[in-house]
Design a protein around this nucleic acid. Sequence first.
DNA 1: TTGTTATTCACATGAACATGTGATTTTCTT
DNA 2: AAGAAAATCACATGTTCATGTGAATAACAA
Lengths: 210, 210
Amino acid sequence: MINVGIVEDNEKIRDLIQRYLDMQDGLTCKAAMESVEDMLDYLEKESKPDVLLMDIQLPGMSGIEGIGIIKEKYPDIEIIMLTVYHDSHKIFDSLMAGASGYLLKHTSLPEIKESIENLAAGGAPMSPQIARKVIQHFNKPDKKKKTESDLTPREQDIVNGLVDGLSYKLIADRFDISIDTVRAHIRNIYKKLHVNSKAEVITKSLRGEI
Amino acid sequence: MINVGIVEDNEKIRDLIQRYLDMQDGLTCKAAMESVEDMLDYLEKESKPDVLLMDIQLPGMSGIEGIGIIKEKYPDIEIIMLTVYHDSHKIFDSLMAGASGYLLKHTSLPEIKESIENLAAGGAPMSPQIARKVIQHFNKPDKKKKTESDLTPREQDIVNGLVDGLSYKLIADRFDISIDTVRAHIRNIYKKLHVNSKAEVITKSLRGEI
DNA sequence: TTGTTATTCACATGAACATGTGATTTTCTT
DNA sequence: AAGAAAATCACATGTTCATGTGAATAACAA
């Protein structure tokens, strides 16, 4: 028997989901709150659910903030976001905060039930549109190669020195060259990267733009 | 009508999937090859499929290498991996190479059909176990908080300015404070982070150590 | 062979940075 | 009400950086 909790401020939706889930075989749904704060109170007193369905837009604390707090106190509770938001920031913030699934609100009741069972079986429920955005997040990084500049090996050495926080003098020592040679390389690096400070080179390098 | 192609070295599985998909309404499946090389030959001559089902373990070029080559030549072809491998490396390598979905081989024929339609509708088909691993990839980064220093909001502003490659003067302008105040903050930042140069602050910041 | 690129070095100057010392005001906690 | 922390500003000094100009050597491609 999977114990499900709900955090959703819209009373109609909350009651509808609760009633539906509670009458399903294998599921029980007793805790249906309108805010994270209420749910936290409930969790201190009553038995903890296995799975929480959570909205993002809530009175008081947002659902995303709620994830962090709940997961810290009760790491075993799995949280599925159930929301209208499909923008990348909210999705990734939720996942990074510790959510195990992300469903859009147009998801039908039977699909929600299926998602909960899916989660209990080791899956990760996601609406298809959400899955798409998550995957796109991985697809992107290829373009880095296009922006790749063509620093010479020596120039790359110098850049690494800068990233390590070395002064010109220390870079010169590291590679056994004169400080003026270091300066010369840095001039060339700046030209190639179209920058004019150590700071920008370091930032570009660590962001993978070199 | 969605045109599907298959790259799979096991003849039985390949034929089975091809026959099944080809007899479905709304789908056609004419191109079923045993290697990426064969599929590339086919793509040069014949009409291009909308969706490719691709194995990873193949004679000759691996499916993951294949993704990159096919996506570069024909960016509009969507690729779904269909494989027995469920290790994180193969999953992420595939997604980063440009795959739009990842199914495990125990997926039933009707589920494969559903996944193709799902993809055509803007979704991203993934087996639940795969979705779980993808999400776990996001869940991890929390541990960074442990190494988090306790810079004040203003100090964090200054750090961001440094990362953006601004001089003290420009940082002062950005926040409407004097350059000496910037200096004062930077002194405090250096003490808290145990560093003594802009470069080190930028590196720490971009490596998530702040 | 001639030209280009990579790597090396030197001298010079104004701008930006690192660091010390000291001080005021506001805000929050005890 | 007293103390701590955060944010603000000032003055001073030595160091490091950014940039200009000029040049030599080696390696490699046209």
